[in-house]
Computed example of a mutant assay.
Amino acid sequence: MPAPAPAPVSDEARRAEAERRMEERGGSRGDLNFTLEWSTTDDIDLYVTCPTGATVSYLNRGDCNGVYDLDANVLRAEAISDPVENIVFTDAPNGLYQVRAHLKSERTEGAKQVILHVLRRNGPSQSYEGMLGDGQVEWTTNISISR
């Protein structure tokens, strides 16, 4: 069972920078974005399970009005140290979203901080921090979305 949602991190400048990086790398902005960033060359994958139960990820790039449009650090030779992954929703359904960050390929030692930005076009945006590495391969949180 996933842990309860951690308290949001309040840093508008950090969210704006993540949004800039996401758009600079070809990500789309929608009614609702789940944008994951970290600062290592590790391959960390983003999964979002919608209120309908469908999961959007690199394995299923489109479902419940969501599209997985940025997949970072897949290949070691092309890995960058400031990656961002993005899942964008148009007309996002209300309800509980389960968001997971999965450490797929660990290429650096030690703990890795991940920051999830929940960007809303018509509503408050929030950011959440988690840790991966040192034996922890998955970080999960639940986000409730309502209009």
Results as ranks from 00 to 15, higher is better:
1 M>P: 13
1 M>K: 06
2 P>N: 02
3 A>N: 10
3 A>P: 04
4 P>T: 01
4 P>Q: 00
5 A>M: 04
5 A>Q: 00
6 P>N: 06
7 A>N: 06
8 P>Y: 01
9 V>M: 08
10 S>H: 12
10 S>L: 15
12 E>C: 12
12 E>V: 10
13 A>K: 15
14 R>G: 08
14 R>I: 01
15 R>N: 08
17 E>A: 14
18 A>W: 03
19 E>N: 15
21 R>Y: 10
22 M>D: 07
22 M>V: 11
23 E>N: 14
24 E>C: 08
24 E>Q: 14
24 E>Y: 13
25 R>M: 03
26 G>S: 10
28 S>H: 08
29 R>M: 09
31 D>K: 03
32 L>A: 04
33 N>Q: 14
33 N>I: 09
34 F>P: 11
35 T>M: 15
36 L>P: 04
36 L>Q: 00
37 E>I: 00
38 W>Y: 03
38 W>S: 00
41 T>M: 09
41 T>Y: 13
42 D>Y: 07
43 D>M: 11
44 I>V: 05
46 L>I: 11
52 T>P: 13
52 T>S: 14
52 T>Q: 09
53 G>R: 02
54 A>R: 07
55 T>F: 07
56 V>A: 11
56 V>K: 04
57 S>K: 07
57 S>G: 15
58 Y>E: 03
59 L>D: 05
59 L>K: 08
60 N>A: 07
60 N>K: 04
61 R>W: 10
62 G>I: 03
62 G>V: 04
62 G>Y: 11
63 D>H: 07
65 N>A: 11
66 G>V: 05
67 V>H: 13
69 D>T: 03
69 D>S: 05
69 D>E: 03
69 D>Q: 02
71 D>F: 06
73 N>P: 11
76 R>T: 03
78 E>S: 10
80 I>D: 10
82 D>M: 08
83 P>Y: 00
83 P>A: 00
85 E>W: 01
85 E>M: 01
85 E>A: 09
89 F>A: 05
90 T>Q: 14
90 T>Y: 14
91 D>F: 12
92 A>V: 13
93 P>E: 10
93 P>K: 07
96 L>Y: 08
97 Y>V: 15
98 Q>C: 08
99 V>Y: 02
101 A>G: 12
103 L>S: 02
103 L>A: 02
106 E>M: 13
107 R>C: 11
108 T>A: 05
112 K>Y: 02
113 Q>S: 10
114 V>P: 04
115 I>Y: 01
116 L>Q: 09
116 L>I: 05
117 H>N: 07
119 L>H: 06
119 L>R: 05
119 L>K: 06
119 L>M: 10
120 R>I: 03
123 G>K: 01
123 G>M: 04
124 P>A: 11
125 S>L: 14
125 S>P: 12
127 S>D: 01
128 Y>V: 08
129 E>S: 09
130 G>M: 01
131 M>W: 07
132 L>K: 01
132 L>N: 02
133 G>E: 02
134 D>E: 12
135 G>D: 02
137 V>N: 15
138 E>L: 03
138 E>R: 00
139 W>M: 12
139 W>A: 15
139 W>E: 10
142 N>W: 06
142 N>L: 04
143 I>Y: 13
145 I>P: 13
